[in-house]
Design a protein around this nucleic acid. Structure first.
Length: 1058
RNA sequence: GGGCCAAUAGCUCAGUCAGGUUGAGCGCUCGGCUGAUAACCGGGAGGUCCGCGGUUCAAAUCCGCGUUGGCCCA
């Protein structure tokens, strides 16, 4: 094993640990060690293979890795197969960009097979890069065997599930108004639409009424949907008015619109005057018929029974005009209302956004490009009341940022709205951390979830396993279709010869497969699945189901999934939806939902803002373990992280303290030939601090366990780190340092070695899931009995060593010690100088008991000759403080004199009455307040402890004896500093020259020559030229000039020197 | 436009559920310690508890209305 460096250098530690893992197959050994343990089925949410790891995905995988390591150490056989989500439009778009493609036509020209190959290569290339990234964070998962959504065996899992959904009667085919990306020529799910502000026309259009005078006034930002107009919607209880409006030229016309909107709209139409001719409700307007405003341009417009009439609808708001142009072919709400009304759907637009011949004059135009023509046509017919533009949020394709259009197209759905009750009930079957994520956020989402559009008119995805009769018409029902569940089943039923072992399930391999049954021939629906279908089956796809059944039967459903809060609408939902629709169950039992990694101000990291921090950069500047510990030291339940470089540096310095604690005993142990791996607490003598730190260790283990079990990961980590810094480093190590310096083997030293070795062994194991490299490095140096620290057990509480009373006492003592240090500082007596006496005063018996039980330790730590514990310190002097509000009225003009006489007097003096200017004054009780002060030479400070408060008094009066020791210690410390300057070995003897300018002080130091020589390994006191010394320095010791010379002894074997 | 989460010292957060003198760590500063020493210990400064309104003897805490940031939905 290499030497342990003075400084914690994460990069070195990590390299050394990584090498060790590689050499010893540590990961395999760890899995093997737990092969027979009870199973813990963790499922990795597959990251999308479009780019590389960023800080958020690094956090996510680190958290998963930490939990997996913890679960293993607590005796579980953990499923740790990582996953990758590799299909979908994002990759298609990237590949199209690489190939310089602009539309589907380019893809068809290249050929679907070649395009699929490109996508496959692209996704695989990204996956390999991400594989490396995740492994570079120290994530131990089964990287040799990840599940990939592009593997036929995984794809089959979606087929199997979809077949179940079909059997359950939850698959539906139909025309629905969906979000359509005209560039990608596919439907998009609501959650694939992102909203941005755009500028659109904002036009007010007159729809001439049939059979009566007047026009309905509607407003729209999408003129291109007017050819598809089918009805006008009004609010049932809204008040409408018919107004006769006068134009600038003096003509008049009648307009119908909501009362509230009249003024505003007439102003926009530049009417000069108007009168109300009619007032009526929405209900009254129902049934009015109107002329299609583009009747000439679009002769084939909706004219069927019930079209071009007024209906009520609940989506109407009293805004703009209060009348809403409705086209079921172009809007979701319009579509739903149209269905209720039994209206046909008229949608003269194809998938790429071009008008069909049904759009008459506009045939072949891209819809958005037709806006201007339509506005102009309306204007020419005097049907345009007003035309301007407006800025508003509008949906865009999540991948290519093209503005979407609403179209009614044939799509396939999983009708999750039919099983809403079951979905909501299944939510209750899962336990979420934090709880509010389930009960508020997720529940709301599920309540509002519409039917799931699972079909995409694209290429790079899992083909829909649906075969429809070749002659199927518009009204095809899902139950008349075949849904295939596995490759084997397809091979059996297919008309063609297929090899289930070797066939690829991607397009175009399955496109031409037909099935003939009962005299009907079926062909495959050309669509692919929505990419969210892929990961929705991860809980069984991970296990190779349906091809492999054993693992599924043993493990399913997942014990735990861990993702960020954006997955509420994503993976948390898709799994619930698919699980419930296919098998009636939620596929996971526990959900840990963490937050996002934002920038230092809590803002989202983004390329355009330029505030991105990459994991690589953080690893470079701090290290893998520090980055992991930093990420894990913050709340892991729903809260976002505001990344701070300072915070990362803080964590690194905390780990450095851990490193210092770890390496502190090593030189001593080596000198004594002590092997920490063989540490035995029954060998040697345990002092009270040993017993205390061992008890604290038990408390920490129990707190840490509890935190883990509630997935309070940051609590677990911070508890260990606090223990290391507060208890081990600041208290324990300080307390045992002197014992380590003892030269001979002693029971006390062995006790300290055993204690510290035990503490280190267990904290290393507790830290292992968080900082795997650092823990490995330490374990291999301290013990190394097993291949890796990660295959060991997580430490368990040893009740024998747990002593809550002692911990309580020590907690009191530390508070008292703090107060003593405070009092010392006030009395101007530094710790190196002993004091004769420290008095601890408290009227709490528990406090006194605590201090008394630890008084030796206390005396040592505060450097006092004597510790006195009392309930009341009777040397305090009560000093009087006059209360002028009482004295003033009582003594009138003499008040000032009385005040001066009273101030600072003792209680005795005041009670006897005070004299001033020859007069005697008696005072009442209420006129004076007393407070107790320490007498001259004693300074005090108060403390609050867990069991009660009190005060500490430090007697700083000097005696020759104390002063003598103080100076001697000061001299020792100067010589030590010089030894360090000379970089002498701890053991190396020296010759020392000492000149003290003050005779009295020189005497003091002489009294302690032996002590000084001992402490500084001075073999001989010498005189001589300054030039004869390796180092000569002049010091100011408490105002006294002291000149010290130090030189090495030439031959260390003969310490007597010359 | 709607839902959820957050806002407390320069920074990270606790305290909010169950109302009662705002706390810790880091940083800053002054001092101490000095064979773990780029470590460690003590003192001090530092707060509109995001704002406004309400309930209450009493509000960081409960309620309402806002502001800012984040996520989700439209």
């Amino acid at each position: 094993m290499e030497d342990i460096s003075d400084q914690y250098v994460p990069a070195d530690v990590e390299e050394s640990a990584a090498d060790h893992w590689a050499e010893t197959d540590a990961y395999e050994a760890t899995k093997e060690a737990h092969a027979d343990d009870p199973a813990f089925f963790f499922v990795d949410g597959p990251p999308y293979t479009s780019g590389q790891m960023h800080l958020g995905t690094a956090w996510n995988k680190t958290l998963k890795d930490t939990l997996i390591r913890y679960k293993r150490m607590t005796g579980h056989r953990v499923t740790d197969r990582p996953g990758y989500d590799m299909h979908g439009l994002p990759i298609e778009v990237k590949v199209e960009e690489e190939l310089g493609f602009e539309s589907k036509k380019d893809i068809e020209e290249l050929g679907v097979e070649a395009f699929i190959e490109e996508c496959k290569t692209f996704a695989e290339r990204n996956r390999e890069k991400m594989d490396e990234d995740f492994q570079s964070m120290g994530v131990w998962m089964d990287w040799d065997d990840p599940y990939r959504t592009v593997d036929p065996s995984y794809m089959e899992a979606t087929w199997w599930a979809f077949q179940r959904v079909h059997e359950n009667g939850l698959v539906e085919r139909g025309k629905r108004a969906v979000n359509q990306c005209p560039r990608c020529e596919t439907a998009l799910a609501n959650n694939e639409v992102e909203y941005h502000e755009i500028e659109s026309p904002s036009i007010y259009v007159k729809f001439p009424l049939k059979g009566r005078e007047g026009n309905l006034v509607v407003w729209t930002t999408t003129p291109w949907t007017l050819p598809g107009n089918t009805f006008v919607a009004v609010g049932e209880d809204v008040t409408y008015q018919g107004v006769r409006a006068e134009t600038e030229s003096g003509d008049t016309e009648v307009l119908y619109l909501a009362e509230e909107c009249v003024e505003e709209v007439l102003k926009k139409g530049r009417y000069v005057d108007y009168e109300v001719v009619e007032q009526l409700t929405g209900e009254d307007l129902v049934g009015l018929e109107y002329e299609h405003p583009l009747a000439e341009e679009v002769p084939d417009h909706a004219a069927f029974d019930g079209a071009l009439q007024v209906y009520t609808a609940d989506y109407v708001e009293v805004d703009r005009t209060g009348l809403v142009h409705s086209a079921p072919g172009h809007g979701q709400e319009d579509f739903e209302r149209g269905q209720e009304l039994g209206l046909e759907i008229f949608s003269p637009v194809v998938g790429n956004g071009d008008y069909t011949e049904q759009a008459g004059k506009y045939e072949g135009q891209f819809v958005r490009d037709a806006n201007d023509d339509i506005v102009a046509d309306l204007d020419s017919k005097d049907l345009l009341l007003s035309g301007e533009t407006t800025r508003h949020d509008y949906g865009q394709c999540w991948r290519c940022d093209t503005d979407i259009i609403y179209l009614a197209t044939d799509q396939w759905f999983i009708t999750v709205t039919d099983i809403k009750e079951e979905l909501l009930a299944n939510i209750e079957e899962s336990e979420w951390f934090p709880g509010w994520a389930r009960d508020n956020r997720f529940r709301n989402f599920v309540e509002d979830a519409p039917d799931w559009n699972v079909s995409r008119q694209r290429y790079w995805g899992i083909p829909l396993p649906i075969w429809v009769p070749v002659d199927a018409g518009e009204d095809l029902e899902a139950e008349d279709c075949l849904v295939v569940g596995t490759r084997e089943e397809l091979a059996e039923r297919a008309d063609q010869e297929l090899n289930p072992e070797e066939m690829d399930l991607h397009r175009p391999a399955v496109d031409d497969v037909t099935i003939t049954e009962d005299g009907t021939t079926y062909e495959r629906v050309p669509d692919v699945f929505d990419v969210w279908i892929d990961s929705s089956v991860a809980s069984w796809g991970t296990l190779g189901y349906p091809a492999e059944t054993e693992a599924f039967e043993e493990l399913w459903p997942a014990d735990l999934i861990v993702e960020a809060h954006d997955q509420t609408r994503g993976w948390f939902w898709s799994q619930l939806g698919m699980g419930t629709a296919a098998v009636g169950e939620v596929p996971y039992e526990q959900v840990l939902m963490h937050g996002f990694a934002n920038d230092k101000d809590g803002r989202k990291m983004s390329k355009s803002v330029g505030n991105i921090v990459t994991p690589e950069e953080a690893i470079d500047r701090a290290g893998r373990d520090p980055l992991r510990a930093y990420l894990l030291s913050h709340d892991q339940q729903g809260a976002n992280l505001a990344f701070q470089w300072d915070g990362l540096a803080d964590v690194e310095s905390t780990l450095n303290i851990f490193w210092n604690v770890f390496r502190f005993p090593l030189p001593y142990m080596r000198l004594d030939g002590y092997d920490p791996a063989e540490a035995d607490l029954s060998d040697g003598e345990l002092t009270v601090v040993d017993e205390w730190v061992l008890s604290r260790l038990q408390s920490v283990k129990s707190e840490v366990r509890e935190a883990w079990e509630g997935y309070e990961v940051h609590e677990a980590l911070n508890t260990v780190l606090d223990f290391l810094t507060e208890d081990v480093s600041r208290f324990y190590v300080k307390a045992i340092r002197e014992r380590m310096w003892e030269e001979e083997d002693s029971a006390g030293k062995r006790g300290a070695y055993a204690t510290l070795a035990t503490v280190l062994d267990e904290t290393v194991r507790m830290m292992a899931p968080f900082t795997p490299y650092l823990a490995e490095r330490m374990y291999q140096h301290l013990d190394g009995g097993e291949t890796t620290v990660h295959m060991l057990d997580y430490p368990e509480v040893d009740a024998e060593l747990h002593d809550p009373d002692l911990e309580a006492h020590m907690a009191v003592l530390r508070k008292v010690e703090e107060a003593a240090a405070n009092a010392r500082q006030q009395g101007g007596r530094k710790l190196r100088w002993p004091v004769s006496r420290v008095v601890v005063e408290s009227d709490e018996a528990a406090v006194r008991e605590a201090v008394e039980s630890l008084s030796d330790l206390f005396a040592e730590r505060v450097n006092t000759r004597e510790v006195v514990v009392v309930s009341r310190f009777d040397e305090l002097v009560e000093r009087a403080e006059p209360k002028m509000s009482e004295i003033g009225p009582a003594f009138g003009g003499d008040s000032q004199k009385v005040m001066q006489a009273v101030e600072g007097a003792t209680r005795e003096e005041v009670e006897a009455g005070v004299d001033a200017d020859g007069e005697h004054y008696d005072l009442d009780d209420g006129m004076v307040e007393y407070h107790a002060e320490p007498p001259e030479g004693i300074s005090g400070a108060d403390f609050d402890s867990p069991v009660g408060d009190g005060s500490v008094y430090v007697d700083t009066t000097l005696t020759d004896d104390l002063e003598s020791e103080g100076y001697a210690r000061d001299v020792v410390r100067r010589i030590q500093e010089m030894r360090k300057t000379l970089d002498l070995d701890v053991e190396e003897p020296i010759h020392t020259r000492l000149d003290v300018s003050d005779e009295r002080v020189a005497g003091f130091v002489d009294d302690h020559r032996e002590f000084v020589a001992d402490e500084t390994r001075t073999a001989e006191w010498v005189d001589g030229d300054e030039a004869a010394f390796d180092l000569v320095e002049e010091w100011d010791v408490e105002g006294v000039d002291v000149t010290i010379g130090v030189k090495r002894v030439e031959d260390p074997d003969t310490p007597d020197g010359e």
